[in-house]
């Protein structure tokens, strides 16, 4: 990993008697896109707010650019951009007024007109924020967060409420920022977003980090999947001897679901078997593990525990 911009060691954060974050560790390297994932209430936003200096930790050590975010805000802020989960833009101001206000509060602002173009808000510059659609408002939030050309950008669910086209455009912008050397910490409920954008990730559950590492490594730990509808009258013993495990619950429900670490070999075996029997495998799906699989695995482990 490159030189760490963020170091979190044993972070704890409590609201009264409720401990939202229960001792987590991770690092974020310079120029890296780090995704913080988790279920609702997992502690992602609280963690982010501690990193942003909006909330003091109740335990552990947090450093951003080697400084304490709650105590050294004045030195950290000019180098960071923040997109909150909720907008926080004043509804009575227009898009242009909002951007001009933020430009005047930022030490090295980029050009407001360029920001309007980059986020496709030119046609909305005279519209009051409270009359924007959810997606337009989110784009404005992103424009404000990136106006100061931050070295480190916090994005708390940046694409929530966006249509697929706007989401894609936002991803392109984030990728461009990362390519330009910006370090990004992202939380999202869209796992495909994290899978596409992130270099490394941590999946939080109930205030703890359940899984962390480089995205490719995390995905490699999880088995690939092959699935198809169980042909009428088929019993498990008739299936070829694949190396993966067949899920008995799914089989009983009428679906063959196989978790395997030899996707290509097992798939070839199954197709040959089906060909020999003259079976058509309906709703056949074969894919490497996705973050959704990893995510559900975390949840299932916790439920089982």
């Amino acid at each position: 990993m490159r030189e760490p911009v963020i170091t979190v060691q044993g972070l704890r954060c409590a609201y009264g008697s409720f401990e939202a974050v229960r001792g987590i560790d991770f690092e974020v390297g310079q120029g890296e896109l780090f995704a913080l994932l988790g279920t609702n209430g997992a502690g992602k936003t609280t963690t982010l707010e501690v990193l942003e200096g909006l909330r003091p930790p109740t335990g552990g050590a947090v450093r951003v650019f080697g400084l304490r975010p709650d105590a050294d805000r004045a030195r950290i802020r000019p180098r960071t951009g923040v997109l909150l989960q909720d907008s926080g833009a004043s509804g009575e101001l227009t898009v242009l007024e909002t951007l001009r206000l933020w430009a005047s509060l930022t030490s090295r602002p980029s050009d407001v007109d360029e920001a309007l173009v980059a986020l496709d808000l030119v046609g909305k510059s005279g519209v009051r924020v409270n009359r924007l659609s959810g997606g337009e408002r989110r784009r404005l939030d992103l424009a404000v967060a990136t106006l100061g050309g931050p070295e480190l950008l916090f994005l708390d669910e940046p694409t929530t409420g966006l249509d697929p086209e706007s989401r894609g455009r936002t991803w392109d912008l984030v990728e461009k920022l990362v390519a330009g050397g910006t370090t990004v910490v992202l939380t999202t409920h869209y796992l495909e977003e994290a899978e596409r954008l992130a270099h490394r990730l941590a999946i939080m559950h109930e205030g703890r980090v359940a899984v962390s590492g480089a995205v490719v490594d995390v995905l490699a730990r999880e088995a690939s999947r092959i699935g198809f509808d169980r042909p009428e009258g088929l019993i498990a013993a008739e299936l070829p001897a694949v190396s993966g495990a067949i899920d008995p619950d799914e089989f009983a429900k009428g679906r063959v679901e196989i978790r395997t670490r030899a996707l290509q070999d097992d798939l070839a075996l199954l197709l040959a078997w089906a060909g020999a029997r003259g079976e058509r495998l309906t709703r056949l799906r074969a894919h490497h593990a996705s973050l959704a699989d990893v995510f559900h695995g975390v949840r299932d482990q916790v439920v089982a525990a």
Partner: peptide, 8 residues
């Protein structure tokens, strides 16, 4: 809260 994420 938004303003507090800025430099002021």
């Amino acid at each position: 809260k938004r303003l507090r994420t800025g430099e002021l």
